[in-house]
C-alpha cells in the first residue's frame, strides 16, 4: 500500500523550484524571476478554493501555467522525473 505524504504549499519553494529549472533551461535571470513570480502567484490563487490537491494535479497546474510563459520550462518540469 502506498504511504500518503502530506505537504503544505509554499510559494517560496515553488518559486525556487522554477528558478532552478530556469537555470537549466538557460533562461535569463530577470525573465526567470518574472515567470516564477507570475506562476507561483497564479498557483496560489488556484489553490485558494482547493484545500487538498494531489501531487499530480498540482504538477499539472504548474505545467499549465508555465506553458503560458515558456514552453521549454514547462517541458523540463513535465519530463524531469522520467528521464530514466
Amino acid at each position: 500500500m502506498k504511504t500518503k505524504i502530506e505537504t503544505t504549499f509554499s510559494r517560496l519553494k515553488l518559486k525556487d523550484d522554477i528558478l532552478r529549472e530556469a537555470r537549466v533551461a538557460k533562461i535569463p535571470a530577470g525573465f526567470a524571476e518574472k515567470i516564477a513570480d507570475e506562476v507561483s502567484r497564479n498557483i496560489e490563487k488556484w489553490l485558494d478554493n482547493r484545500p487538498v490537491v494531489t501531487k499530480k494535479s498540482f504538477d499539472l497546474a504548474v505545467i499549465r501555467e508555465l506553458k503560458k510563459y515558456h514552453p521549454d520550462l514547462a517541458y523540463i518540469f513535465e519530463n524531469r522525473n522520467f528521464m530514466i
Partner: peptide
C-alpha cells in the same frame, strides 16, 4: 543503451540548477 546517457542528463539537470 540509454541508462548511462539518461543518468548523465539527470546529473546535468540537477547540477546546472544549483
Amino acid at each position: 543503451f540509454q541508462v548511462a546517457p539518461g543518468i548523465l542528463l539527470l546529473l546535468y539537470h540537477s547540477s546546472l540548477g544549483c
